[in-house]
Computed example of a mutant assay.
Amino acid sequence: MELYFLGTNAGVPTLQRNVTSIALRMLEERRSLWLFDCGEGTQHQILKSPLKLSKLEKVFITHMHGDHVFGLPGLLSSRGAQGVTSPLTIYGPPGIKAFIETTLSISQSRVPYTMEVIEHTGGVLFEDDNFLVESAKLDHRAESYGYRVVEKDLPGSLDLKRLADYGLKPGPLYGKLKRGESVELGDGRWIHASDVLLTPKKGRVVTILGDTRPCAGVEALAKEADLLVHEATFMEDLSELAHEYYHSTAKQAAEAAKRAGVKALFLTHFSSRYKDIDHLQPLLNEAREIFANTRLAEDFGLYPIQRS
């Protein structure tokens, strides 16, 4: 899994940063791409990136403010124009379905693929054998949500020494054991997967939040996550302004990361008053005083999510 930031600015785009959109690349895990928010210009950012709309499987919208959704109609239309026919599922708060249907209908945009739009108010949104996605409400002027992506634990590696003791050589039976199946040897003996698999590999947890003030939903979603993406619209000297506009400071993001016990924190959604990376450095310093493993998200930044 890798995070790829397509936009890290708040409110409106600047010459240095586009508005919010984050891609979660899972090419090894499921050969697909998940997108979190889709601010205006997101498809242009994708054109400048290694990402492909043909890989896009799911879109998760945190809230209905324009800097998080205005790029969605164009992206959906362009995906069809490129000849992509694979299905797409979109998750978002109440209103997302009407927004998509209205804009596509009025603009006479053609979507030649199956598209399912799921409105939600939190809870478990998706689960299969490999992943679980949960959502919880945050504290913002608009109904805003965060998402917790949980990779389920993976089977441990095969214990090659034990397999050799059984006299089993590499081949199709290795694959069956790796999948958790039992296999029969030629002499009538059985080997069970639990006999030859090492400790399972812990799945990764990624939490991506929408706009929010500090609230209980943040820490519930972020608990012991490998990586937390948290807005940091302002520095702490503007904490009153942040509260008034239902946003967070870099210090508040770091405090949430520390309380939740996350492993790494990425700050994003920066106010336009912080014009470039030099102006953002004080936000990073402020956060690192509380949570050392903090980084600034940058447009077109690709960040691998390592296993523990």
Rank of each mutant, 00 (worst) to 15 (best):
A222Y: 03
K223E: 03
E224W: 11
A225C: 15
A225T: 03
A225W: 00
D226K: 10
D226I: 10
D226V: 12
D226E: 09
L227M: 09
L227Q: 01
L227V: 04
L228Q: 02
H230S: 13
H230D: 12
H230K: 05
H230V: 11
E231F: 09
E231L: 10
E231T: 12
E231N: 10
A232W: 00
A232L: 08
A232R: 00
A232V: 10
A232D: 11
T233D: 05
F234D: 00
F234N: 03
F234G: 01
F234A: 02
M235F: 04
M235A: 15
M235E: 09
M235H: 11
M235V: 07
L238M: 05
L238N: 08
L238Q: 02
S239N: 12
S239F: 05
E240T: 04
E240S: 03
L241R: 14
A242H: 00
A242M: 03
A242K: 00
H243Q: 08
H243Y: 12
H243G: 07
H243C: 03
Y246T: 04
H247Y: 07
H247W: 14
S248R: 00
S248C: 13
S248Q: 13
T249W: 06
A250C: 14
A250Q: 01
K251T: 14
K251I: 13
Q252A: 08
Q252N: 12
Q252G: 08
A254P: 01
E255K: 05
E255H: 07
E255M: 03
E255G: 05
A256F: 03
A256D: 06
A257D: 00
A257M: 14
K258H: 10
R259M: 02
A260L: 10
A260Q: 00
G261P: 07
V262F: 02
V262T: 09
V262N: 12
V262L: 07
K263P: 04
A264T: 11
L265K: 07
F266V: 11
F266G: 08
L267M: 08
L267W: 01
L267Q: 04
L267H: 07
T268F: 05
T268S: 15
S271E: 01
S272A: 14
R273Y: 14
R273M: 11
K275I: 05
D276S: 14
D278F: 13
H279K: 11
L280G: 13
L280N: 04
Q281D: 06
Q281M: 12
P282K: 11
P282R: 05
L283R: 00
L283S: 14
L284G: 04
N285R: 13
N285W: 06
E286A: 11
E286V: 03
R288Q: 15
R288T: 07
R288H: 11
R288K: 12
R288Y: 06
E289D: 09
I290P: 00
F291T: 01
A292E: 09
A292L: 07
A292Y: 02
A292S: 11
N293C: 08
N293H: 06
N293K: 02
N293R: 13
N293E: 06
N293A: 14
T294A: 15
R295T: 09
R295Q: 04
L296C: 08
L296Q: 03
L296I: 03
